[in-house]
Design a protein around this nucleic acid. Structure first.
Lengths: 112, 112
DNA sequence: CAGTATCCTATCGGATACTG
DNA sequence: CAGTATCCGATAGGATACTG
């Protein structure tokens, strides 16, 4: 009864988990895993995400300190997103999850 | 551009991820990680989850093939939940995530 | 004990259109 | 290009009460 008290009650770990407990956060973090990307590059790489949701997700991750936004002084103007060190620390868990997801994608019933 | 095509577009991995992309699935799976539990034991261990949501989450995981429900022929009647082999395979990613969540809980801004 | 039933709110997520 | 604005529908999630 000692190594399983991580997600008990309202422990901080639960709050932390909630930051990424949605359909897109993990994907976005994973998408930024190889390095900084511009908004449109990120959108293109992810595919199937709406402007609204991508922006929303980025803002949430920004507030959480996982992602950093950098305006680019280019013409036309642009913006770049990158993982913070904290964000990069999430890359490991996310990769493990990604591997699991791809390895077992065929085994589960989505809409039985 | 080759090892990062896991979460691209509508790949199966994304569908898989969606099964557990909510606030409670991970917690429930984690909660069942040490072995089968009765409904009330599970609820007690998790804490702070409503009946409705716990049931909902268990049913979703059941449909996904991650959790198995076993009615108990006891008096008073009960039910037991356990991870399937597939569910147990999720335990690894989930544990990694749990460790990350507890390790970095203090570093992120929840409501800045 | 193990749920189900209701109700209600908040957030998620998609589509479309518009702007600095 | 990189968003914002708006509208809308679908879930998620919480509280409370009730049942086999």
């Amino acid at each position: 009864m000692s190594d399983n008290d991580v997600f008990l009650a309202d422990c901080p770990a639960r709050t932390t988990l909630r930051l990424i407990a949605d359909a897109w956060s993990v994907v976005v973090v994973y998408g930024l895993g190889q390095g900084p990307l511009r908004y449109s590059e990120l959108a293109g790489r992810i595919g199937g995400i709406s402007n609204k949701v991508l922006t929303q997700t980025l803002r949430r991750l920004e507030r959480g300190g996982l992602v950093e936004r950098r305006p680019l002084a280019t013409a036309p103007p642009g913006a770049e997103y990158r993982l913070t060190p904290l964000g990069r620390s999430l890359l490991d868990p996310v990769s493990v999850l990604a591997r699991w997801a791809e390895d077992h994608a065929d085994e589960l019933g989505g809409d039985d």
